[in-house]
């Protein structure tokens, strides 16, 4: 495991309007995070980097229910973000669940 690692680097992509107002290139960023290596921690780091993101994904402090978090192609519910572990090189997509057609 990676318990001895100080940092891991992951790729984060922002879609479906979440990228709006964020200083990103190609709607994505590579980011190093320290422990705990969880989705929850990653989002907290991102919110500090991009204050606008917080406005886009939270309402009254809680994640909006239509936030879609995808880790390596697998959807996780915002409520599971705290425990969802991340590894070096993981690809995370943050987006809204949209209706589509």
């Amino acid at each position: 495991m990676h318990s001895n690692q100080s940092y891991i680097e992951v790729n984060v992509k922002f879609l479906f309007g979440l990228e709006k107002g964020l200083p990103l290139k190609n709607r994505q960023t590579n980011i190093k995070i320290s422990q705990p290596f969880t989705v929850q921690h990653l989002i907290e780091v991102l919110e500090k980097m991009y204050p606008k993101l917080k406005e886009n994904i939270r309402y009254k402090g809680e994640f909006v229910p239509y936030l879609n978090i995808v880790v390596n192609g697998c959807e996780i519910l915002p409520i599971q973000a705290r425990n969802k572990e991340l590894r070096e090189g993981d690809q995370i997509v943050l987006m809204y669940v949209g209706v589509g057609g």
Partner: peptide
């Protein structure tokens, strides 16, 4: 945000990249 910003800006086309990703 989807109803107040996403759909008025993009319509339903946000699904394209969401599905591709």
């Amino acid at each position: 945000k989807v109803l107040s910003t996403g759909l008025p800006t993009y319509g339903t086309t946000g699904a394209t990249m969401a599905n591709n990703s």
